[in-house]
Design a protein around this nucleic acid. Structure first.
Lengths: 142, 142
DNA sequence: TATTGTTATACTCTATAACTATA
DNA sequence: TATAGTTATAGAGTATAACAATA
C-alpha cells in the first residue's frame, strides 16, 4: 500500500537517480567552467545572456540570487570583457546586461565543450532511448 | 547526416534537458539545505556520510575538493554537532569522519524534505514513466 | 514613497603553499 | 621520504543592511 509519504520505492528510485544524475551533470559543467577560470555561476550568467539582455533585477531572478550578489558577478565578468552594462533606454535607474562579442564567442565554445563531455554518458543510450529520456525530462520540467 | 561532432539535434536535446533538469534539482536541494542553514556542499557531506565513515582524504575525493577545503567543511559541521572526527585505528595520521546521532537525524529529515519538494515534478509522470526515467538515468550513469 | 542598483560588511567555500605528525 | 591532515592566506560567491539616484 502506498501511504503517499514520498517514501515508496518507485519515488525513491526516481529521486535518487535524478539527484545522482544532477550532481554528475553539474560536476561536468563545473569542470568545463573551471577550464576557463569560470565558476559555475559565471557559466550560468553567460548561458542566460546567450539569448537575453535582462536588467540586473531580472538577471538576479533568473539566478535566484540577491541583486547585490549579481552586482559582484557582473563586475567580474565586465572586468574580463565578457559582459557589458548599459543604462536602460526606458528607465534611467535600470542597467541592461549583455554579452560582448568575446562573451558570445566563449559561450559557444563552452556549449561545444559541454556537449563533448556529456556525449560519453548520453551515447551509452541508443538514439531512441535518448529521445525517450529528453522527452521524459521535458514533460517533468513543464 | 550525423557528422558526430556532438551537434546533431538529438544530442543537443538530451544535453539541454539534462542540464535544465540538473539545475532544477540542484536548486531544490539548495533550497532544502538553506532551510536548515546548510550550504549545498554541507548537504552533500551529510549525504555521503549517511552510509560511509570515510577518512578525510576519501571524503575529499568523494566531494572532488582539496583536503584543506574539507578541513573547513568538517570544522563547521563539527561545530554544529552534526559530525564527529575520530583518529583512525589503523593509522594515527588519519581521521575518520562520521555522523553524530544529531547528524543522522538531520540527514533523514533532509531526505524526506527533498522527496516532498521533488514529488510535484516527478508525479507529473505516470508510475510507468517514472520507472522508465529512473531506468534510463541509471543506465546512463553506469 | 517605492524601486533599481551599488557599496559596506561578514561569512562560507575553495585553492595553493607551508607546516606538523606519522608512516 | 612520502602521506594525512591542518593552518595561513587570498579570492570568489553570497546575504543583509544602508545608501544614492530615479520613478
Amino acid at each position: 500500500m502506498n501511504t503517499n509519504t514520498g517514501h515508496d520505492q518507485a519515488s525513491a528510485d526516481v529521486m535518487d537517480s535524478l539527484v545522482q544524475a544532477s550532481f554528475t551533470v553539474i560536476a561536468l559543467l563545473s569542470q568545463v567552467a573551471a577550464e576557463h577560470d569560470l565558476s559555475l555561476t559565471q557559466l550560468r550568467v553567460l548561458a542566460i545572456l546567450r539569448d537575453r539582455e535582462p536588467k540586473m533585477a531580472q538577471l538576479a531572478t533568473f539566478l535566484g540570487l540577491e541583486r547585490s550578489s549579481v552586482s559582484g558577478l557582473v563586475d567580474r565578468a565586465v572586468k574580463r570583457g565578457l559582459v557589458r552594462r548599459d543604462v536602460s533606454s526606458d528607465d534611467a535607474r535600470a542597467v541592461r546586461v549583455s554579452l560582448t562579442s568575446e562573451g558570445q564567442r566563449l559561450v559557444g565554445l563552452l556549449r561545444d565543450q559541454v556537449a563533448v563531455l556529456i556525449a560519453p554518458m548520453t551515447s551509452s543510450l541508443g538514439s531512441a532511448d535518448q529521445k525517450r529520456l529528453s522527452g521524459l525530462l521535458r514533460r517533468m520540467l513543464e
